[in-house]
Design a protein around this nucleic acid. Structure first.
Lengths: 268, 268
DNA sequence: CTCCACTGGGTACGTTGTACGCGGTCATGC
DNA sequence: GCATGACCGCGTACAACGTACCCAGTGGAG
């Protein structure tokens, strides 16, 4: 019944400030869970595994977190803190948004299990809240709040959609447990069958062209990102000129997508 | 060991063409599972529940499907068949892509559990394959295959990202099990606390402006969609003119997002 | 010092996916 | 026509999961 008191995790205090001092903490538990999920996927981060990782009994975790779902929420918000948005808005909205998109993608690639967590909008964690604050601050001076929400959603959706594809193809390959050559052989067998059927000309075109080198994942992402940013530029008033000309391939932001982002504000 | 023979579900034949005739079918099982997932969520579609729904024993399902994960893949592909892309390309790429986006969104809203399934790129099902074929056929004449992939990915990402938000906010509300007024009260308590802290000016702006009426979800989606389509238009050569002027609010495509899409090609 | 809300954690329960093996069925080889 | 053996549906069984419940111990408030 005390559980129903709070609408979400963030409302529930961690420490009741009475009784003996707890031996662990939410942050510690969250960190251990993330480590396991990074190594073996989200479903490997069971309550027992997490508890064992910090040297606790399984049921002890429930003194800190009401349920596993809530722990996953904690983990997801912790991840949001890894996206470096310090110093935004810097005055160069294009650089800011590029840095955000790169940071978001890099974080997802570091923690691919994030794709499996259903985030729930109304339960904003502190890191997510801070991220939104900084991110939406970038365009706040130029457009209405509704327009800002739409533009930021477009940018985030593009980034997440792209990285979801990267993750799932990597996951599929790993899940099979086959050696790379074995997997390729089996896959080619399927693909060849589809190609030979003649019913899928476009699919065939993709496959055929895939056998000669494509752009790297990074370049593909950057190419699409530039398009999205151009689209955002078109929605901005002319007073919001960026130092960088829209259609030129200017220097990239300082944080490459495969570079490690600094552990940003932790908060939880 | 026979399991490892096939790289994915679609390679594995449904019927071994020997022995007694099966009493059920993959399609029947998939349909039952979808019905349960629609009503109570994906996690409610357990093997036992599905089996009971078609009057079978729990273990009988494994004669048709190697694992639950594979069944979920079947379900996801079945859903792709609900998106009506017949007659594409029609010659009006803007209308085609609008119809696709509306259809995709409508399908997600009808089956919100699709958000929880990790789709795996290399294991294309027949419906997904056909969808890609028709969809990418729309721009195939105008751009390279790589450019086409990028543009279609952008459109799909925008649509999925937007509908994911709609779904998760609805889910969060339902999950709490509280009455609407109760939930609003508790939520306001949290929101007010954040607003009063003064640390989140942009969040405050969103909340304040949200109290006066915003655009409907449908209108928000259409507004953003128009922006994405304009962005696509900019990437197309001038020879790819659409009958509809890009920046005017032309008539919408024939299939509204909340209208029910026709059960399209079933295949599986 | 007494009290009791708190602590960590052991045991246990219901539910899950699914491995295994059973007896029955039917296209095929003789 | 009949034996064969691969298939059928499915009951039983098991390991692993999230977590309800209970316990003895602990340490700040009165």
């Amino acid at each position: 019944m005390a559980d129903a008191e709070y609408v979400n995790i963030w409302m529930r205090p961690e420490r009741p400030a009475y009784g003996p001092k707890p031996a662990y903490s939410r942050a510690q538990i969250t960190e251990a869970a993330i480590r396991i999920a990074d190594a073996e996927g989200l479903e490997a981060a069971t309550m027992r595994r997490i508890a064992a990782a910090i040297g606790a009994g399984a049921m002890s975790l429930y003194r800190y977190v009401p349920s596993r779902d809530n722990l996953v929420e904690l983990m997801a918000d912790r991840l949001m803190g890894e996206i470096d948005v310090t110093g935004m808005p810097s005055g160069d909205w294009r650089a800011d948004l590029t840095r955000y998109a790169d940071g978001l993608r890099a974080m997802w690639l570091r923690h691919p299990w994030i794709a499996a967590v259903q985030r729930s909008l109304p339960s904003f964690g502190p890191n997510q809240l801070l991220l939104i604050e900084r991110l939406m601050g970038v365009l706040d001076a130029f457009v209405s709040i509704d327009e800002n929400l739409g533009l930021v959603a477009m940018l985030s959706s593009y980034t997440e959609g792209t990285v979801r594809e990267e993750i799932s193809s990597a996951r599929e390959f790993r899940r099979s447990g086959l050696s790379e050559s074995e997997w390729m052989a089996r896959s080619h067998q399927h693909v060849d069958q589809l190609v030979k059927s003649g019913e899928y000309p476009i699919f065939t075109k993709i496959v055929m062209e895939a056998r000669q080198p494509h752009l790297s994942r990074d370049d593909q992402f950057r190419h699409g990102l530039r398009r999205v940013l151009d689209c955002i530029a078109a929605a901005l008033p002319s007073t919001a000129g960026s130092p960088m000309p829209a259609h030129r391939d200017g220097r990239q932001a300082q944080d490459g997508p495969s570079g490690k982002a600094p552990r940003a504000t932790q908060h939880g």
